[in-house]
Design a protein around this nucleic acid. Structure first.
Length: 532
RNA sequence: GGCGGCAUGGCCAAGUGGUUAAGGCGACGGUCUGCAAAAUCGUUAUCCCCGGUUCGACUCCGGGUGCCGCCUCCA
């Protein structure tokens, strides 16, 4: 793509603390590295968001004409993995492989595309050893008894990403954790850790050992994107120490003007206003959520808030015995504050409700149903021979959508741009009153084709609408234990009653359906049902 | 304690000094309907407080207040 035709895209850069115009190293190309998971357990929703945010960025950059090389690593050498392996009596690598596969499955469920390269630490040990040696040669690292530490006082930019200064950090160092006395400075961090007996190890000039936590990203990004590349992303919490240390390592080895040109960090997911943590009640794995709600609705919900903001999941748990809403203490203890019944917490977990996700799911259904009707209309109506302008909301939809996306990937604003078009199209679908046949057809046609572009960018609304709607219905029916045959049967009876204008009987049947949690919609072509 | 972020209608949430301050949910009213539902249309905010810069600030600066995060493994 010609540089002159590239659109202006701004993104927030953590290093400078403001939005910057994206100027890639090579016009039209974009190299992007994101910190992927450490695979010691099932992914949680925070992992999902951290993968989703760059996924949408990459999709959008590609839509805008960039050739993107997207690298997301898998950290498969780590203390927690080793610990788990020894607990289970299997090699650490087996643990890592297992959870890497599960991660892949969870991400695929959420329609998150595979990165172009998904490097693993275990496959880059030689590059890591080289990098550590370079740092030692440059006096930026030192060896102690088989461990290698980064010598922070010799890297003058330390703290520039997280805006901390070394003196202040030294003052508080050691107040929260014990400092290894062999380190020259409490702030020095491990590049290489000597293997203890029984631990997995790789050969190195300093003996058997394994990489420290931060070095892998420096080594793997260089390997796959070069010493300098465009965007480096990850969760907010990685700013310090992880990314700060990456900078020290990579710029220490390759020069001050190298490494990531832009730093992008996504916000956290909270449950009931609290950061997700492993304490019961607000820690949810990706698949716990996707078992309860359609994965695409989950994806949509995550995109309704700007990626740098925190995203709160409201959590509702009803007491199984009295039906009252349980407060946070109740959720944690399992004891209902209203009727004092004790319920095992694992039972409570399975009937958690997330009102935000329900709303998102309803919205998805609205959009897919609009798409479905639009397609049906286009399949039966005749394409007009003349050209006429489409209605204003549909006309402006894609342009407004893209403008929001160019402004720091503002998915929330972008999503808002769909509403007017959706309203207009549903209006036209309902009736052609007041507009010409050409306007009606062309507007609906344009909407369907522009929505396909939106779907490519967001990774939402791209499925076959009828298929999606059917899946949703079946899934909900199964979760509610609804007998669909019974519903259909009642619907037939009611249609007969309505044909006889027996309104009393029709309304009685409708009440019966309401009891089942089912609503009916009567239309000119008969009646259909949906969930209330 | 240090550093960073946030504060917009009943709730959620965009907002790039001058815009009628998006959009969603909810509520209320209309159209449609046998009645409903769905769909659709309309109504529903002056942006935490105090100063400052400016012709003009929700938007920039300073000071409060209140939340939250990072500083230890964490997305």
């Amino acid at each position: 793509m010609n540089a002159a035709t590239l659109p202006t895209i701004s993104l927030f850069d953590t290093m400078t603390g403001r939005k910057q115009e994206l100027q890639t190293l090579e016009p039209g190309h974009c190299g992007m590295y994101c910190c992927g998971p450490t695979v010691y357990g099932l992914s949680h929703l925070g992992n999902a968001r951290a993968a989703l945010v760059p996924d949408v960025m990459v999709r959008f950059l590609r839509h805008q004409g960039y050739e993107v090389k997207y690298v997301r690593n898998i950290t498969d050498i780590d203390d927690k993995i080793i610990k788990l392996g020894s607990e289970e009596g299997i090699p650490a690598q087996e643990v890592a492989d297992r959870y890497a596969a599960e991660y892949k499955r969870d991400m695929a469920d959420l329609n998150i595309l595979d990165p172009d390269v998904e490097p693993r630490v275990s496959e880059h040990v030689p590059q890591i050893v080289d990098l550590v040696q370079t740092l030692i040669d440059k006096d930026l690292a030192y060896e102690v008894e088989g461990d290698v530490y980064y010598r922070i006082k010799n890297f003058k930019g330390y703290g520039k990403l997280s805006k901390r200064n070394i003196e202040e950090m030294l003052e508080s160092a050691g107040s929260r954790i014990d400092v290894d006395q062999r380190k020259e400075s409490p702030l020095d961090f491990a590049l290489w850790k000597a293997a203890k007996p029984g631990e997995p190890g790789w050969d190195s000039p300093w003996g058997q050992g394994r990489p420290g936590w931060h070095i892998e990203c420096s080594a793997m990004s260089s390997t796959h994107l070069g010493d300098s590349f465009d965007i480096h992303g990850g969760g907010r919490d990685l700013i310090f120490p992880h990314h700060e240390n990456e900078i020290a390592q990579s710029q220490g080895a390759h020069g001050e003007d190298t490494y990531a040109r832009y730093w992008s960090h996504n916000g956290f997911i909270d449950f009931d206003g609290e950061k997700m943590s492993k304490s019961l009640g607000n820690f949810f794995t990706t698949r716990e959520i996707t078992a309860l709600y359609d994965p695409e609705a989950v994806r949509y919900f995550l995109l309704t808030v700007h990626y740098r903001s925190g995203l709160n999941f409201e959590v509702e748990v009803k007491c199984p015995s009295c039906g009252a809403l349980m407060d946070k203490e109740g959720q944690e203890s399992g004891r209902c504050p209203t009727c004092e019944t004790e319920t095992p917490t694992d039972v409570l977990r399975k009937q958690v409700r997330f009102p935000g996700l329900e709303e998102a799911d309803d919205r998805m259904a609205y959009i897919y149903s609009t798409l479905s009707q639009a397609r049906r209309f286009l399949a039966t109506a005749k394409k007009p021979g003349n050209e006429e302008p489409v209605t204003s909301g549909v006309e402006g939809m894609l342009m407004t959508f893209v403008a929001h996306m160019r402004n720091d990937f503002n998915t929330s604003g972008a999503l808002g741009a769909l509403s007017k078009a959706l309203g207009e199209v549903n209006g036209l679908l309902d009736s052609g009153k007041g507009v010409s046949k050409a306007v009606r057809y062309l507007t609906i046609e344009r909407f369907v084709s522009d929505m396909a572009e939106v779907a490519d960018i967001l990774g939402c609304f791209g499925q076959d609408p009828d298929q999606w709607l059917a899946n949703r219905r079946d899934g909900k029916a199964a979760r509610m234990g609804l007998d669909i045959a019974k519903v259909e049967n009642l619907l037939v009876k009611r249609t007969t009653a309505r044909g006889d204008k027996d309104w009393e009987a029709a309304d009685r049947i409708r009440d019966e359906l309401t009891e089942l949690g089912v609503g009916v919609q009567d239309g000119p072509d008969g009646s259909v049902w949906s969930f209330l």
